[in-house]
Design a protein around this nucleic acid. Sequence first.
DNA 1: TTTTAGCACTCTCGGCTTCCGAGTGCTAAT
DNA 2: ATTAGCACTCGGAAGCCGAGAGTGCTAAAA
Lengths: 351, 351
Amino acid sequence: MSLSDRKRRILKAVIDEYIENAEPVGSRVIASRSRLDVSPATIRNEMSELEELGYLEQPHVSAGRIPSTAGYRLYVNELMQDYALSDHEAEAINAALRTQMRELERTVREFGSFVSRLTNYTTYTLMPSPSSERVMKFDVLIIDERYAIVVIVTSSGLLKNKRIRLATSATEEEIRQVVRILNTHFTNRTLDEISLSLIKRASAEAGNLAYLVTAVADFAGEVLDDSGDGDIYLDGISRMLNHPEYRDPEKARELLNYLSDKREILRHTKEHFSDDNVAGQIRFSIGTENSDEPLKDAGIVYGTYDLGKNLQGVIGIVGPTRMDYAKVAANLNYFINGFNKLIRDSFFTDI
Amino acid sequence: MSLSDRKRRILKAVIDEYIENAEPVGSRVIASRSRLDVSPATIRNEMSELEELGYLEQPHVSAGRIPSTAGYRLYVNELMQDYALSDHEAEAINAALRTQMRELERTVREFGSFVSRLTNYTTYTLMPSPSSERVMKFDVLIIDERYAIVVIVTSSGLLKNKRIRLATSATEEEIRQVVRILNTHFTNRTLDEISLSLIKRASAEAGNLAYLVTAVADFAGEVLDDSGDGDIYLDGISRMLNHPEYRDPEKARELLNYLSDKREILRHTKEHFSDDNVAGQIRFSIGTENSDEPLKDAGIVYGTYDLGKNLQGVIGIVGPTRMDYAKVAANLNYFINGFNKLIRDSFFTDI
DNA sequence: TTTTAGCACTCTCGGCTTCCGAGTGCTAAT
DNA sequence: ATTAGCACTCGGAAGCCGAGAGTGCTAAAA
C-alpha cells in the first residue's frame, strides 16, 4: 500500500527541515511551517505511523523525529523537488567546463572542486578505468644524446610520458624509423592484444635500436595496465568538518581516514556500480545502505561521465546522511550533461 | 647570557617529554625521568626561571609547564639530538626514490605520502616555480584530420600537452615543418624572451599553417607562465586529527580549511623563503613565528629540493607546535639528499 | 649559597545532582 | 477524524563537590 498524500507531505517536510537544520524535528514545527492546516496533534499521529512504517526514527523518546535510511530513499526516489540551480552555481559550473579540456583530468577535477565549495561536501573524481583502453599514437622526443622522452596518447585522450636512457646515441632519422615501427605495430590495440611475439617481430625491424622498441612497448603495457586503477582526486575533505554531525572528532577522523584511502573509495565505488541497475546517471547511496562501516551515516551521490566508448568516469559527492540530495543531484546533473556534450561533439568520437 | 648547562638539560627534557605526551610536564616527572640527580624542588626553581626567560609557559597556575615558541626555537637550533632513522623509515624513503622519477612529480608526491604516514603529520609538496623555465623541445602529434596534440618539454623535465583543433587538415610533412620552425625559434628561451616580433617572424615562415605556430607559441607562454604557480599536493590531511591538540573540532576545522586552500600555503611558503637567510636545507617555522592566524599553534618543517639550475621545490610538513621536529627533520633530510643526488647525476644537468 | 623537604594554595577535571524544556503518547472532548 | 489538554520521559545545561596534580614559598639542611 502506498502512502497517503498527507503522509508523504509530512515526510517530505520532515526531511527538508532536517536537511536544513540537522536537528530532530518535532510536530509543532511541521504544523506551523508546512501549510497543511492541521494541528500538531494530528501531525503527531501521522508521524508515529510513519515511524512504524520505518520512514522515521526517534533518537530518544522525547526528541523530534529524524528520517531513516528508508525515509531518505523514498525522498530521493519520489519526494524531492528538482532543485533549481542559482545563477551563481550554473556560472561556476560553466566556468569549469569552459576550461575546455586543456587537460581532461583537470576539467573534471576543477568541477569537483567547485561542487565541493558550492555544496560544502567532499567530492571525489574517479578517472575512467580504461581496461579497454588503446594506444592511439606513439612519439619519441630526443632530449640530448643520452635521453629521450616517450610519449603515448591513449584512446581516452590521456597522454603519458616516460624518460628513457639511450644506450647509443641515435640520429633523428633512426628515431623516426622507430616511431614508425611503433605506430604500425602497436597502435589501436588493447593490452591483451599486444603479445610477446608481436613485440619480437616489431623489434626485429628496428635493428640496433630494438631495445628502444622493447622499452617503449613495456611502457605502453604499463600505462594500459596501471592506469586501469584510474586516478582518484579528492576535494574539500576538510569541509566535512563544517557539518554538525562531525562535531565528534572520533566520527570525523574515522570518515576522513576512510576517504583519504583511495583504495577504499575505489573499491566502494566499483562495488556500487557492479549492480546492474544502470538506471539514470545520478545515483544515491544512503546511510546504512553502504556496507562500509565509516559510511554508515554518510550519503553519497554518484554521477557518471563519459569519455568515449566504454569509458566512464565517476564523480562522487560525500556528505552526512542528511545531505541536500536535491541540490547536489542538480549540480552534478548539470555538469555531467555539459561535459558529456562537450566530449561527444569534440573528441575522438570515431574511436 | 647563555643558559646554564643544567637549565638547558631541563628545557630539553621538558620539550622531549611534551613532544611525546602532549601534556604539560611537571617537576616530578623531570626529576625522575631525566638523570640529573636533583629533587623536584630544584627543578621547580629552574623551571620558574626558564619561564621568566620566556622558554616555558604555564597554561594555568597549577599545571605543568609547556614550551613556548622561543623554547622550541632554542630546541631546534641547539638542543635537539639527531634522530636516527629506523630501518623501516629509511626503506620507505628508498622505495619512494626507487620509483625512479617515472614522473618527477610523482616521486616527490610519493615521498610526501610516505612521510605523512611515517610521522602522522600532514605534508605538502610544492613543485618548483619555474619563472626561469625554458622550453626544451616542441612536438606536434596528429591525431586525426581534425585534431593534433602539442607537446612541450620544459627545462625542468615537465611535459605539458594541449589538444589543438586543426583549421585545415595538414600533412605529416607540413607538421614536421612547423615543428622545425618551433624548435629553431622558441627553444631555450624563457617567457620574457619570447617576444611578439619573434612570434610574427616565426609564423611568417609557416605559410598557411601560421595559425598553428601562433597557437603553440601561446600555449608555450601559458605553460611557462602559469606553471609558475607550481602545483601543490597535500597528503595526510586527515592525520591531523590524530593529534590531541585538534580534539577541538573548531581548531581542527580552522587549520584544515587553511591547509586546503592552496593559495594560502603558496603565499605562506613564499613569504617564509623570502628572507634571505638561506642557511641549511631544512628550516623550521614554529607557532607564533607564523604570521597566519591558523598556523599560530602549528609547526612547519620545510625542506627544499633541487630540480636543476635555479629550480627549487619545497616540501612542507605541518603538525601541532609540539611536533617531533627531530624525527621529521631527519626524514626530510634523508629524502632530500637522496633526491638531489638522483637528479644531479641523471638529469639534464647541462641545462 | 644551594638544595631540599614540607605545606598551603590554586586550578582543572570528572562525576553527581538538579532543573528545565521540548516533545511525545494517551485520553477525552469536539 | 481531529484537536485540546495533560502527564510523562529524557537529554542537556548548569551548578556543585572532591580528588589530584602541581606550584610557590618558607625554613631547614648540606
